[in-house]
Each structure stands twice: as structure tokens, then as C-alpha cells.
Amino acid sequence: MKIEVQNFKDTRSGFGDGLLEAGKRNPKVVGLTADLTGSLKMGDFAKEFPERFFQVGIAEANMIGIAAGLANGGFIPFTGTFANFSSARIYDQIRMVVSYSNKNVKIAASHAGVTLGEDGATHQTLEDIGMMKMLPNMTVLVPCDYNQTKAATIAAAEHNGPVYLRFGRPKVANFTPADEPFVIGKAQMIQEGKDVSIFACGHLVWKAIEALPILKEMGINAELINIHTIKPLDVEAVLKSVAKTGCVVTAEEHMRNGGLGDSIAQVLALNNPRPLEMVAVNDVFGQSGTPDELLKHYHLDTPDIVEAVKKVIARK
């Protein structure tokens, strides 16, 4: 893939613009929010389709139930709130009336991870991928930039079944092609290589891209694959890459327990055990700070990916 930074945009705006587009394409698409229309960038959809937009107030549990009822009636509801309130706060509701009942609800989860920044640990969910991937019927998407989040939103609307769509707050490099369709469950090759497989998701895909020239200077030819779909995981792509490189680094803005790295570890252990290093948060909560400070503090930054690669190659 040709990597070309087009601009710097927040992934949540990709969701907002994707929702508007999905709403134009399909009159069954409806939006709900728990008092976070602006934060989730749902304002344009609300303005364009006021009769299809539901302001639920600060009542996330009720929002999920209403969404399930709307989905049962043939609509395609997108619920929008922060990731923590889209997962942990309402896990049982999602479990019973969305996942178990298998209703076509799309849970749009913004401000995920430590890059939410100054609001601190109460809002920085690092556990949601784990919670959501454990639920049967649930598809879990973690797109990496504005363009991909927009495409993932449109793909989620077209997919029949529950979806958890995770994205973030800060402006980040927007580098994937604007016209590239999002294929759920199909990993995205960013750069082919032979010495190490880097599997990344969300904001850390860009951090891994930044690591590539540094690794190249060190004589390491890294393969970078964007695992934008945590579930269903593209097991074939993972195994194909590992067969070539023989070692793995995972990178994600999530807890090590339950995250992308944990999914990859399972695939490796069951099929082709190889050395694995995980760039992830290890069993601690976040804290206040700027997104950049926090990525550095929790070892989720470009140098941490480089170090993990060096370490895993030494273990080969």
C-alpha cells in the first residue's frame, strides 16, 4: 500500500461522515446518542435526518434497549457515546438484547484508549475490545484513520449483525486511500516484509508506520498488517505472514489482557507457536495527560514498537 498522509483528522469525524453517507444510502439507518451528538460528530446526520435521530439523554442502557427494538423493527441503529459507556457501562444490555438476541445494532464507540487524554482513567477504556470480542455474534472493528473509519461505518451499516466500532478522539494522520472499501474480516497489508510481522490496530497502525523507516535503517525488513477487524480475525493472513517472518509484534491502544495481542497469541499457540511481543497497556489504568504524553508514558509509541521488534527478533 502506498502510504501518503493526506491530512490530519480525527477518526470520530470519519464516523460522523460515514454515518451521514450510510444514512443517505439507506433510509433504514438511524442514529441514537446519549447526549454526545457533538463529540461523536453525529450533528450532520441529525440535521439531515432529524426524524431518524434519537436523543436519548444520559441513559446509555436505555439507548441500547431502544436500539435493539428499532433493529427488531427493521432499522439499522447506530448508538453513539464514549467507548467506556458503549461497553463496560452497559455490557449486560449489549449481551442480552444485542449479542444474544442477535439484533442488527451498531455500537459506535468513540474516545477509546488513552488518547482520549486529559479526562483521565474514568473515561479511557482499555478493556472494551476484550469485552466485545468475547460476545458471540459480535463483530469488532478498530479502524486506523479518518478514511478507514468512514469506510468502516458504511461497511458496518451494510453488514447484517451486531457491530462494535471503536475509534478515537485526537487528530491523527489520515493515510489510507479515500476510495478504499472496508472489507470486514480482511486484514490490510500495509507493507510486506520478511523479518518480523507487526500486527497493529487503531491509532497504533500509524505509530507502526513511523517505526518502519527506523527499522529499515537497522536492516530490519518488517511486514506491517493492519488488523482493523479484531473479530472475525483474519487468521489466514496472520498465519501466512508468520510463516514467512517467524516472529510477531502486536500493537494496540488497549489492555494486553483481552486485546488484539491476546487474539494473535491464541492463533499462534494453536497453530504455529512463534515468539511474540505485545505493545499494549499491561494491567494498569490510564491517567490525565495529553495524548502524546500518554502514548509515551504507557509505552505505546513508535520507539516502543521498535524496541519490541528488536526484542522479538532476538528471540527467534
Binding site: 434519537f54 442502557a61 436505555n62 439507548m63 441500547i64 434497549g65 431502544i66 436500539a67 435493539a68 427494538g69 428499532l70 433493529a71 427488531n72 423493527g73 427493521g74 432499522f75 441503529p77 444490555q93 438484547v97
Partner: peptide, 11 residues
């Protein structure tokens, strides 16, 4: 259930 019923009613 009441939340779900409300959603069904809105549908």
C-alpha cells in the same frame, strides 16, 4: 423490556 418496547414503538 421497556426500553426495547420503546424502540419497537419508535420503529
Amino acid at each position: 423490556g421497556l426500553s426495547v418496547a420503546i424502540g419497537a414503538a419508535q420503529a
